[in-house]
Write a protein that binds this DNA or RNA. Structure first.
Length: 541
RNA sequence: GCCGAUGUAGCUCAGAGGUAGAGCACUUCCUUGGUAAGGAAGAGGUCACGGGUUCAAUUCCCGUCAUUGGCUCCA
């Protein structure tokens, strides 16, 4: 006999080899009907996997996130099977469950999949689902697994398997279909009653632009037809909140092909809204000890060579503007910080002067790839509610906390409740993408982690998301369609002060290097207005 | 930038190889006891742009531009 502990703490005894399904049955038939996945000692398993030791067991239905994951993951298998039948010779790669549904990436070779084919795929999918084929896991040796996919000429699966260890490789079979798979399925295909292809898109193998582009088929599935209808309805309503739609209807902003793509034109009503936002923040900043400054829209190329922006982004920027006679090179400013560093440098500073906080609603211009432009959330010209705090090392924590408070004040005022504070760190395996010493990075990252923790923020850590000069604390907000955007951002920077040779005289009469905090509570006026529109569906507070 | 889709009246969209339509909005008039009322008339489009095929293209083909869903990128 084995002891099974359920989430409510109840302990029950079962025969060794009892399955999660049988555990559910012993509780109630209704539960057994609905359970589609389970976790045994923290590991996701099938409902038919025998439990062989004492275990903590959690049962999942479609109503749990875990249940949905199993459901959609299993649906991805069916989708792959359908695609293989409809397009013989395609190569399967990966097909995970995602937040809303799932996708499968396939290499179609010469073929492409068009929207006109969706119906065909959906029909085939449902036909296969109705077979009620069981999902069955089996272990495979690395050699056998490699042999199968080498024979099929599927270099993608071969690559995946080569990165796995012998003994931990499993296949999942259902009906006549087999896929490399870690497990976590619903009992059989028949549970999937509704399915829709949402979209096809290109996606690079391993998210690498230099590798093959695959065809990604996005789908969503449900155990009931009604759930699909409801889901589509919700999506349709979400589209009504799109800031691009509302911005046009409310006459807030517009775009003109003649002016250029990604360059927003603010209409009178939009300008009025934006002014009010700026005034709101200006007031809060004056109170918090910021000093307004103004800087030009262009800067000498050398400024950005010094800051490192030229090296990092020069090729992907609007190209230099040349003077007609002297042969000088200027750049449209992509950042305000170099200008602010030079303001700091304009006179000698004492430790008594710090912290110095320069604030500017600074308009910047960045070349964004055409495929990236997106209403106000991703534009080529935008205004950052920027400020740079120059402080002593012993002042960082306090300053950082104050900035967090300011950001939270802004979010609270505009009723942004659904945000995540993302701690964006350097990718330790790709240090060449960043400037500055390990020591400086360590200090800066630690300062952010400590303060965010102390403030009790709901944080997630993302490595590789830092700016090239320092780590960030980014306040991420979702748009109407569930896409995440960075609004507020706070960054600790030891590197630009070094590059600009910023100094202050300490109480010891020696020269010291200040630390910079970059911060923008709105992020940018454009993106914030977009967020505000979608957050309140155009009904401004 | 890459893969897919789209581009027709101010807005939402239909349409077909023979030189364009609907609803809403707009203008004028009429009806009606005032809050998304009804009726009549009217205005509004080189059907994104540039090539090609054709007797004929807005409709088919190619290219460009823009928009859009993803991917990649995002100081």
């Amino acid at each position: 006999m084995i002891k099974v502990t359920l989430p409510d703490g109840a302990v029950k005894e079962y025969e060794k080899g009892t399955t999660p399904f049988q555990v559910a049955q012993s509780i109630s038939e209704g539960l057994a009907r609905n359970i589609i996945s389970a976790k045994v000692n923290g590991q996701t398993v099938e409902t038919t996997t025998p439990i062989t030791t004492d275990a903590n067991v959690t049962l999942f239905s479609f109503d749990n996130d875990e249940g949905k994951k199993a459901f959609w993951h299993s649906s991805a298998h069916i989708l792959a099977q359908a695609l293989e039948k409809l397009y013989p010779g395609i190569k399967l790669t990966i097909g995970p469950a995602i937040e809303n549904g799932f996708y499968y990436d396939v290499d179609c070779g010469e073929h492409t999949i068009h929207e006109a084919d969706f119906k065909k795929i959906e029909d085939k999918f449902l036909e296969l689902a109705r077979e009620k084929a069981e999902f069955k896991m089996r272990e495979v040796s690395k050699a056998d697994a490699l042999a199968k996919y080498k024979k099929e000429g599927n270099e993608y699966k071969v690559e995946l398997i080569e990165n796995l260890n012998d003994g931990e490789i499993t296949f999942c079979d259902h009906s006549d279909f087999t896929d490399l798979c870690r497990g976590g399925h619903i009992p059989n295909t028949g549970i999937v009653k509704a399915f829709k292809v949402m979209n096809v898109a290109g996606a690079y193998w391993r998210a690498d632009q230099t590798k093959n582009q695959l065809v990604r088929v996005y789908g969503i599935s449900f155990p009931k037809q009604k759930m699909l209808t409801d889901y589509l309805e919700v999506l349709e309503q979400a589209k009504q909140r799109d800031h691009r739609k509302l911005g046009k209807e409310l006459e807030l902003f517009t775009f003109s092909q003649k002016v250029g793509q990604g360059l927003p034109l603010w209409l009178p009503k939009g300008t009025a809204l934006r002014d009010r936002l700026e005034n709101f923040l200006k007031k809060a900043q004056l109170k918090a000890g910021y000093q307004p400054v103004m800087t030009p829209h262009i800067g000498h190329k050398d400024l950005y060579v010094t800051s490192g922006h030229w090296d990092k982004y020069g090729e992907d920027s609007f190209q230099p503007i040349n003077t007609p006679h002297e042969g000088e090179e200027f750049l449209l400013k992509p950042m305000n910080c170099p200008h602010h560093c030079e303001i700091f440098n304009s006179s000698p500073r004492s430790y008594k002067d710090l912290p110095i906080r320069y604030a500017e609603f600074g308009t910047v211009y960045r070349y964004e790839q055409s495929g990236e432009l997106h209403g106000l959330t991703r534009a080529r010209c935008f205004t950052v509610d920027d400020a740079h705090i120059f402080c002593r090392p012993d002042q960082i924590v306090d300053e950082f906390k104050n900035v967090i408070d300011l950001v939270l004040y802004v979010f609270k005022t505009f009723e942004f409740t659904d945000y995540v504070a993302q701690i964006s760190l350097r990718d330790p395996d790709n240090k060449e993408k960043y400037i500055g010493s390990d020591e400086n990075w360590k200090k800066a990252e630690q300062a952010i982690i400590d303060t965010a923790t102390e403030k009790g923020l709901n944080t997630v850590v993302e490595t590789g998301e830092a700016a090239f000069y320092g780590p960030k604390l980014d306040f991420m907000v979702k748009d109407a369609l569930g896409r995440s955007w960075q609004l507020g951002t706070i960054q600790v920077d030891y590197n630009l002060p070094e590059r600009f040779e910023l100094e202050y005289k300490g109480s010891d009469n020696e020269s010291h290097r200040p630390v910079m905090i970059h911060r923008a509570p709105f992020g940018s006026m454009e993106r914030f207005v977009a967020g505000l529109i979608e957050n309140c569906a155009g009904k401004f507070p």
